[in-house]
Design a protein around this nucleic acid. Structure first.
Length: 868
RNA sequence: GCCGGGAUGGCGGAAUUGGUAGACGCACGGGACUCAAAAUCCCGCGAUGGUGACAUCAUGGGGGUUCGAUUCCCCCUCCCGGCACCA
């Protein structure tokens, strides 16, 4: 055994050994229980970042742990390979997206391998491979047959100069990222998936996911947004020129008697009708067209509106109500129109105040009165007043009564609505999965027949940023109609990349199946037992995957209905930001690796200086690692300098997986130091000669007390680490427990054969306990401790219950809840004996002298509290 | 604005069911080894007072429940994340 720890050598050796034995390639024929551990697959952006390393280390720790526990563990990996960055790279460097993507995959695969993740590489897939995306196309056609996929028009960001559709992230301050031209909203046809048909199931099934974090479930429930309300029809006042009735949805039908106007979205047909002979209104609607498309931006904009001059009739009072166009009404929710009740809705209140519209209160608190005039909307439920025959009712009763009255007049009915909208999957982009449709002048839209799938995306195209390259590639779009055999045009839109990621985890089960999308192996491996990924995917990706699984279930392709049984959302990786303001007011960022801390006084950091010039830099606090702030750390450099084990150990030790992780070079050094210490302890032991460990029944009554204590601590640590890995997923405390044990063990310097047995037992167990986290060093150390055997064949250690038996236990003695001493008592001592021992304690005697003991609380096994 | 999560030493964090606040690591200080440095090892390390044994204070702020509160309840401040003007 070498005296020094050489990570590069042992890591290369370990990885080679694993590869030769192919231990991570798994099949469905095992008689062990299956365990599917999945990490979110990466986008092949170029190289791994620390977030990936954290994600995949968590997955690998759990996989290796379960493997040792006797499970048949699948840990696959693949590539979310379609997407906009590949096109951007192409535009900037003239490289075809396919080449850029495949080069990145090759490099990142080698990085993953150098980190020692136990992945079944036989199942690797990339979503840009025809063998994968043909099944996107195939399932899309099945959805089309079932009516789950359909066509309608959608609003997009349109760059008028490049004649191209822009993604939200390509819109900067309302202008196109390349051209700087103001972006317009434009309606173009696109394909949708009817996820709303599954809204109720997606909502109720959240209750069947106890292994998901509550906050993710809450976010999904809010996103689906089920609400109970009433659809109300406001008949037109034809005398005013109003062409049609207006239908609105409200959850607060109890406030109907307080409605003072009706507001419609700018895109609403009534608004467009009114704008015909009203240039001012037309201009306002046009202005809204250039407004925000992202709802978050819509949310913060100032409320604006304009009267249409049209009127509707209140369905119960027959009063005339004006119709306004307002920018706070969304065409995409409900009917694109709302009844406005300024007294009881904040938005309506703001709007009415601004345009001097009447405010009519009709709800008051159950006890007390409203102070009129209102200074803000009263939005609580309460009791109706000034509401004619509906006065004096509680809100719930008023909703029922008003709904009934409306129903009798044929002007309303109760209705359940969802906030969730159908999923638009059409993208006017090149680097994505082609939508398998053909447009024929004679037959209309014709699906590509199954035997002509896949519609292959040409891989040699270099986009230039204007328009969709596929629409400029005749060899792609020219085709023959499969029905009438006439010349036809292929659809050039591609699918949203969220389609690709909605089922990749099912394909891993049978990635070599060429005859069908999935086969029976999917039902062996799925659902995923543990899914690990970033919180940023809490809504879209996870919701789409749940939807897709349910569609596949309904098509008889799989038999599960929820794809992910347990979900772990890992926190982000942060690092400190350093900068200087340069002369012209610009900010120059410096990478933390170029900066040294500067101390004033003992251990208190007072600043930082740039190593290059010795001058101070400012700290911009802690933020996510990003290119723009120049505070990233390249995992590759860490692996090359310290080895993969150090990188893995630091990431698992610095904070629990669900919390944010602050990068620290000193912390990495500390992790490296620990591994060196571990190596040295094993080395020193092995130098004296290995011995049989004390595993099995031992005569621990004859041990000296300190040995017994160590063995007790060892087996306590085994229990704790097991619980931390399996139930709590707190790898940081698991590592801390092992460190503590090592610190204790280092104090035992004895050549007695018995204690050498004990040390052997401890070292073997420490190596086993740490092996999921730092597998390479443990692989090497195990061979030294047990020559001729392999760590990979060892089961997870079990605590010896005998070692955990203690004759005496320590109790804490408190006076009025404050720690005042410790006593040792026999394990089976009764309350009276414990109380007496505590009161006899010298220090306690002194502390309570002159005071009367009022009460003694004894918590068995823990403490004694004396109340004086 | 709404929803969710937080706030513990110089720093990251620990305290799992209401029971020893600060485990473990980092930083820092002191010492050993060394011609010297690095590496390594040992010791110390919340604040205040005290030579010391100890005592008092301390988990963002204020109140409450309890023998006992970082943990539970109420109010407030600040920070982070998400979002939906959702009718």
């Amino acid at each position: 055994m070498q005296e020094k720890y050489h990570p590069q050598e042992i890591e290369q050796q370990a990885q080679q050994d694993w590869q030769e034995r192919a231990v991570f390639n798994v099949s469905e024929t095992s008689d062990k229980p299956k365990y599917y551990c999945l990490s979110m697959f990466p986008y092949p952006s170029g190289k791994l970042h620390m977030g990936h390393v954290r994600n995949y280390t968590i997955g690998d720790v759990l996989s290796r742990y379960r493997r040792m526990q006797g499970y048949n563990v699948l840990q696959p990996m693949g590539w979310d390979a379609f997407g906009l960055p590949a096109e951007n790279a192409a535009i900037q460097r003239g490289v075809p997206p396919a080449k850029w993507t495949y080069d990145n995959i090759a490099y990142m695969r080698s990085q993953l391998q150098s980190l020692g993740f136990g992945i079944d590489w036989k199942r690797e897939l990339a979503t840009c491979e025809p063998d994968y995306y043909r099944w996107n196309q195939w399932l899309f056609l099945r959805m089309l047959e079932k009516g789950i996929a359909y066509q309608k028009t959608q609003v997009v960001n349109w760059d008028p100069v490049d004649q191209t559709v822009l993604a939200n992230e390509q819109v900067i301050d309302g202008c196109g990222w390349r051209t700087g031209a103001p972006v317009e909203k434009r309606e173009i046809p696109g394909y949708y998936l009817a996820i709303t048909k599954y809204a109720d199931e997606l909502l109720t099934d959240l209750d069947r996911l106890p292994g998901w974090p509550e906050r993710v479930k809450t976010m999904q429930a809010n996103w689906i947004g089920k609400s109970y309300g009433v659809d109300i029809t406001f008949p037109p006042d034809t005398a005013s020129g109003m062409p049609q009735a207006l239908k609105v949805f409200t959850t607060r039908a109890d406030t109907l008697m307080g409605a003072t106007y009706v507001a419609v979205a700018a895109e609403h047909p009534v608004a467009l009708h009114a704008a015909h002979d009203n240039p001012e209104l037309a201009a306002f609607i046009e202005a809204c067209r250039h407004g925000a498309t992202i709802e978050a931006e819509l949310a913060t904009q100032e409320k604006k509106g304009m009267a249409t001059g049209l009127y509707v009739i209140h369905p119960l009072t027959s009063e005339r109500l004006p119709v306004w166009v307002a920018n706070y009404v969304l065409m995409s929710y409900g009917e694109g129109a709302v009844m406005a009740v300024p007294a009881h809705d904040e938005r309506d209140f703001d709007f009415a105040s601004q345009y001097a519209l009447p405010i009519k209160p009709v709800i008051k608190p159950e006890s007390g009165e409203l102070s009129i005039p209102l200074v803000q909307a009263y939005t609580e439920y309460g009791v109706t007043f000034d509401s004619g025959e509906f006065s004096g009712l509680e809100s719930a009763a008023a909703i029922d009564a008003i709904a009934l009255a409306l129903a009798q007049k044929g002007l309303g009915e109760k209705r359940v609505r969802y906030r969730l909208r159908d999923w638009g999957i059409s993208r006017q982009r090149y680097w994505g999965c082609p939508i398998p449709l053909i447009h024929c002048n004679h037959c209309g839209v014709v699906p590509v027949p199954d035997d002509q799938l896949p519609v292959v995306l040409p891989e040699d195209v270099v986009p230039d940023g204007s328009g969709n390259p596929l629409a400029k590639t005749p060899s792609f779009y020219e085709c023959i109609c499969p029905r009438c055999r006439h010349q036809a045009r292929r659809e050039t839109d591609t699918m949203d990349t969220f389609v690709d990621s909605s089922w990749y985890f099912i394909r891993y089960a049978c990635a070599d199946q060429h005859a069908s999308m999935v086969d029976r192996r999917a039902d062996y491996w799925l659902p995923v037992d543990q899914y690990i990924g970033g919180i940023e995917h809490a809504i879209l990706h996870l919701l789409y995957s749940r939807f897709w699984s349910k569609v596949m279930r309904d098509l008889g392709l799989v038999s599960f209905d929820e794809p992910f049984s347990n979900l772990l959302t890992q926190g982000m990786v942060l690092n400190e930001i350093f900068f200087r303001k340069t002369g012209n007011g610009r900010i120059q960022y410096y990478n933390p690796s170029e900066v040294d801390p500067w101390y004033e006084g003992e251990g208190k950091r007072s600043g930082a200086i740039l190593r290059a010039d010795g001058q101070p830099v400012e700290s911009g606090g802690i933020g996510t690692m990003s290119k723009s702030k120049n505070n990233g750390v390249d995992p590759q450099e860490i692996v090359e300098h310290y080895g993969a084990d150090t990188a893995r150990l630091f990431m698992m030790f610095a904070s629990p997986p669900t919390q944010t992780l602050e990068w620290s070079d000193a912390g990495v050094e500390g992790a490296f130091r620990f591994l060196k210490r571990l190596w040295r302890q094993v080395y020193l032991h092995v130098q004296q000669g290995i011995v049989a460990s004390t595993i099995g029944p031992i005569q621990h009554h004859e041990y000296p007390a300190e040995w017994k204590t160590l063995r007790y601590q060892l087996h306590q640590t085994i229990s704790k680490v097991t619980d931390d890995l399996e139930r709590r997923h707190t790898f940081n405390t698991a590592i801390a427990a092992v460190m503590e044990l090592m610190n204790e063990m280092a104090k035992l310097q004895d050549t007695d054969p018995d204690v050498r047995q004990l040390i052997q037992e401890a070292l073997e167990n420490i190596v086993l306990l740490l092996s999921p986290i730092v597998p390479h060093i443990c692989h090497a150390l195990w061979r030294e401790l047990r020559p001729g055997t392999e760590l990979l064949d060892q089961p997870w250690p079990k605590a010896d219950s005998q070692a955990l038996v203690q004759d005496e236990i320590e109790l804490v003695v408190q006076i009025n809840g404050k720690l005042r001493g410790r006593i040792r008592v026999a394990k089976e001592a009764d309350h009276a004996a414990i109380e007496q021992t505590a009161l006899d304690h010298e220090h306690i005697q002194r502390s309570i002298a002159g005071q009367s003991v009022r009460r003694v609380v004894i918590v068995p096994g823990k403490l004694v509290n004396i109340v004086v």
